[in-house]
């Protein structure tokens, strides 16, 4: 599904430019649950930003279902993001002025649907993440774990090809972390959703199927987790 070839990424320009990613080669197939591990500053977030179509300024080639993403325009990126990928962030990234239901429905609105038409979908997906009664609440009135569930609901509402989770448990206590991980595993096994997760928590990473270690912008190791 995802084929990355010789991707390099620089921050800044000229003499002060900083080489973040060095010749990354990576393939991910459908249905995989991949963890990307590394120290802070190792470039793991940069890598998933590229994988998740958030960052279109990189050197190298990126084939998504054999489409050359590196040749796409910014507008095409928006559409690609909207239809193919769901994001779960460490600090949830919910819009606090909107209700939970509006937050979850946001990707569908940008897909061109009407508010009335998406109510059922939003309700279903909130039930799936275990928050059937939260739809009219504001995110700030929910606990961290609940907020993360909302953001997962928002990520899966469009039935995306894959999920990008950037430190999804980073701001949660261990009990809530376990619950969120259970939810991820469920999504992966039941719905066959591909999940790409960044974490620096070994315990969390061990619950996935494949761990990729990154150090200083280079892939250090890439191995299956032994069940």
């Amino acid at each position: 599904m995802i084929d990355i070839k010789n991707v390099n990424k620089f921050y800044g320009q000229g003499d002060s430019s900083f080489h973040v990613l060095h010749d990354i080669n990576l393939s991910i197939s459908e249905g995989e649950f991949v963890s990307i591990m590394g120290q802070s500053g190792s470039g793991k977030s940069t890598l998933i930003n590229i994988i998740g179509f958030l960052d279109d300024e990189f050197k190298g080639e990126y084939f998504y279902y054999n489409h050359p993403i590196h040749e796409y325009t910014r507008t095409q990126f928006s559409k690609l993001r909207n239809q193919n990928v769901g994001f779960v962030f460490q600090n949830f990234k919910l819009i606090n002025t909107l209700t939970v239901a509006d937050n979850v429905g946001l990707p569908l609105l940008y897909a061109g649907e009407k508010r009335k038409a998406i109510k059922e979908q939003v309700k279903d997906v909130l039930e799936a993440v275990g928050l059937p009664d939260a739809s009219e609440k504001k995110p700030t009135n929910l606990s961290g774990g609940q907020q993360q569930r909302v953001s997962i609901a928002r990520a899966i509402v469009t039935n995306p090809q894959f999920l990008i989770a950037d430190e999804p448990t980073g701001a949660l206590d261990s009990k809530t972390s376990r619950e969120i991980m259970t939810l991820f595993k469920e999504l992966n096994q039941k719905n066959k959703t591909t999940i790409i997760m960044v974490t620096h928590d070994e315990k969390v990473a061990l619950q996935s199927e494949r761990i990729i270690q990154i150090l200083d912008g280079r892939i250090l190791s890439d191995k299956k987790v032994n069940a």
Binding site: S78, F87, R154
Partner: peptide, 16 residues
């Protein structure tokens, strides 16, 4: 800014 970022991340085009 955050809201704009979130909207862009879930697939809003610059135009919208």
């Amino acid at each position: 800014t955050q809201e704009i970022g979130i909207r862009l991340a879930v697939g809003a085009s610059g135009r919208s």
